[in-house]
Every structure is written in structure tokens, then in C-alpha cells.
Write a protein that binds this DNA or RNA. Structure first.
Lengths: 177, 177
DNA sequence: TATTGTTATACTCTATAACTATA
DNA sequence: TATAGTTATAGAGTATAACAATA
């Protein structure tokens, strides 16, 4: 699947109803938390995508660059295992990044089948800039929350995550299709 | 684009790394709230999809059934405006539901171009069952939260929503592509 | 014979646009 | 001429499977 949080290109339409008498339509499902989380998750993902677009990265490209940064000099195959994406997807993803001069594939010193992946200087700079934009988005998201409230919110969200058997730190959408 | 919260069919792989020495990989972006929301939103959407699958509905089919329930006897076109999906998508969506005997298209009394949409008895029952499953998911999500904590969480999430200019009650993923 | 990376193919999903019938 | 609904087409994105080189 492409998106369990994928984003649509076409977004907001003017949306003026000439028939304003229609019922306001109930929330998609029963109560509020599940709906809010699904809705916010979607919007956060979309906003994040828009932020990354300013440095011409897609979320998954950013995720891959970060992975490469934290796994400098490892093989393509290592990244495939780490990010759980098909090897063929890794190929085209790396092709794109390499063409832009952000990463480099090098011959593996001992295994001639294998290729190691490295961030270039340009790539390193871009990851840093993109990281700063992500941090900026985070502060927008948390605007109006005190530090204590923010921590409490995180605590509650983690509880919800445990209720749903979420594995900490692993985002199932950004890289998985 | 297909999903800004779409879900993948293929999910969990065993995922046992034979190379456990790789860095744990930082969270996809900077701090925590944005990442958590995106992650949880994805998981909630996926879990919701799994719940709906038990009554053989997709999230967007459920959303459409609910919309029809709250707009009994309105035209297809009205639903198109309400849910903001292309008319051609509405056609195939309704075709599916009609083939299963959940909804019916009827001739519009005054405009012969138009067709009104109605829930059948079977459809009404199914919506109710699906709604119950959604409510059940909601209580799973909120397990371990007191009523006060739950309301506070909703309050905080609404604040985050306002920070992101989210329109209340409108879920941009379930129906939009 | 198994594994790394690559290429080719096929599939799903959905939006766009053309078309019919009514207004 | 414009609108309701339908059908047909095309595009994006991604997974699956076949393949070549090396282990």
C-alpha cells in the first residue's frame, strides 16, 4: 500500500455548498480520540511533506537520508533490513538521491557484490536543513502548550500507543508502503 | 496521490536483524509530538481499517454509508459535494454498495437526470454494527485514561489541530485521495 | 546454491476527461 | 448552454518476480 498516511497532491477546494441545508455529518467514528488522532496524523504528515518539499525532499527520502547518516558506510542491504522496504524500492530511492549528489554508492571493500552508501557533504548539509525545518514544525505543533503540558501530552499519547501495540520509534508509514 | 493515511496491505514482517549492531535510528523528525501523532494516526487508521474489514467495509465505504444515513434521499451530487470526492469515484463507490444491497439509487421525483440515494434495511443494520465496532476501538484506544484525562487529551489535541489549521470534523484522508 | 543489487513487469488506485441524457 | 451521472483512459506509485554478478 502506498499510504497509511500517504498524502494527496490535490488538497483544499473552495467548498462552498449551494445547498447549506445538509446535515453537518457526524464524525467518521463514534467518539473523539480515535478520529482526532487519525485526522491529526494525516494533517501532520501532510504538513511535514509540505515542509520537506521546500528542500525538495519527500518524507521517505528524508527518512532514508537520516538512516544513512546514522549508518554511514553500511551496505544497501543493511538499509533494506533497517527500513523494511523492498530492495527494488531502495534502488530507485538511492538512484534519485545519488543523481542529486546527496549520497554516494561505493564499492564494498571485501564483498564485490555489495555497495556501501555514504552521505556527501551536500547531503549532510541538506539533512541538517531539513532537520531544522522538522524542528520548526514541531514547535508550531506545540504552540500554546507549556513544557509540562507537552510532556503530559506525550505521556498520554504513549499510553494510547501501548493500547494499540505500537512499537516505540518505528513509524510504519514513512517507509513502508 | 493515493494516501495521506492510506494503509498498506502487507504489514508486519518478522524483522529479526542478524546485524544487531546498527544504531537504533533517530526518530524521523526532531522532537516527539509530531512524530507520535503521525505514527499514531497511521496506526489508528490501520486498526480502524482492520475493524471495518470484519464487516467487509473499507473506511471510505463506512464514511459514505454514514453520510448517506445523515442525508437520506439526497442526490448523488449532494454527496459528491459533501464528501469532496470526484463524481466518478462516487459512482464506483455506490456501485459496490448497491451490489451488496446496502444502498439503493432511486429516480429523483422532479429531475430525471438525478438519482437519490437511500440506505436499505440491511445497510442500516450494517452501519449500526460498524459503528459499534468503531466505538469499541475507541474504548481500546482510551484504555487506562480516566474520563478527565480523556477530555484533557481531547482538549490538547484540539489545540494542536488549531495550530495546524485543521477544520473541525473534517477528515481529509478517509474520503479524499 | 545463496545472496547483493538491478531491471522489468504487473497491479492498484484514483483522478481527468469524454460522453449521454436530461434541464 | 449547463448539469447529473456514467464510462473510459491514463498516470503515479509500488510490490513481485526474473536476472546478472559474485560469494
Amino acid at each position: 500500500m502506498a499510504n497509511q498516511h500517504g498524502e494527496s497532491s490535490t488538497s483544499s477546494r473552495p467548498a462552498e455548498d449551494t445547498k447549506p441545508d445538509g446535515p453537518p455529518s457526524k464524525a467518521p467514528f463514534g467518539h473523539a480520540v480515535g478520529f482526532l488522532l487519525s485526522q491529526l496524523g494525516y494533517v501532520v504528515a501532510r504538513t511535514f511533506r509540505a515542509a520537506m518539499a521546500e528542500v525538495e525532499l519527500e518524507p521517505r527520502q528524508f527518512a532514508l537520508l537520516r538512516a544513512i547518516e546514522s549508518a554511514e558506510g553500511r551496505s544497501q542491504n543493511f538499509l533494506v533490513d533497517l527500513l523494511r522496504i523492498p530492495a527494488s524500492s531502495m534502488v530507485s530511492l538511492l538512484d534519485q538521491l545519488e543523481q542529486r549528489g546527496l549520497v554516494e554508492r561505493q564499492a564494498h571493500p571485501s564483498d564485490r557484490r555489495s555497495r556501501t552508501v555514504h552521505l556527501t557533504e551536500v547531503g549532510r548539509d541538506l539533512v541538517e536543513r531539513a532537520g531544522a525545518m522538522a524542528a520548526s514544525l514541531e514547535s508550531t505543533i506545540c504552540r500554546g502548550l507549556s513544557e509540562a503540558e507537552r510532556e503530559e501530552l506525550i505521556e498520554r499519547l504513549r499510553l494510547v500507543g501501548r493500547n494499540l501495540d505500537v512499537v516505540e520509534g518505528a513509524h510504519p508509514d514513512v517507509m513502508e508502503s
